[in-house]
């Protein structure tokens, strides 16, 4: 995916708390990897409409089921606040 500015969406129940924490951590990882990305947050109800042209969606396994099949790569993480879990999962997806 080199060169292009990525679009990443973090999804949680309300799109207010957990996804914002995710967004801040994602931005840190993106910077460490020397990539560029627009990271936004949204709630599960509007997720399907918002993630249309996103490259990567990050959310929990339960919410990923509700999102269903989408074009974007869906990264699921169990613990929203575990920085390392998120970092590994995201790096794997971006490189893979």
């Amino acid at each position: 995916m080199g060169g292009k500015r990525l679009k990443i969406v973090a999804v949680c129940g309300m799109g207010l708390g957990s996804s914002l924490i995710l967004k801040m951590n994602i931005e840190k990882v993106i910077k460490d990897l020397n990539l560029e990305a627009d990271v936004s947050t949204t709630d599960i109800s509007t997720a399907k409409a918002v993630i249309g042209d996103a490259d990567v969606v990050i959310t929990s396994p339960e919410l990923a089921q509700q999102i269903g099949d989408v074009k974007a790569k869906v990264v699921t993480i169990k613990n929203f606040v575990n920085f390392n879990e998120m970092k590994e999962a995201l790096e794997k997806t971006l490189k893979g």
């Binding site: 708390g17 957990s18 914002l20 924490i21 967004k23 801040m24 947050t41 606040v81």
Partner: peptide
């Protein structure tokens, strides 16, 4: 909040790096 909270966190990380983040209940 998605503009204001990261700013707040950035500032507090510099001033009180050892503080624990208090997070929303779905955590």
């Amino acid at each position: 909040i998605s503009e204001i909270i990261p700013a707040f966190k950035g500032i507090s990380d510099k001033i009180v790096p050892e503080a624990k983040p208090a997070l929303d209940c779905p955590v």
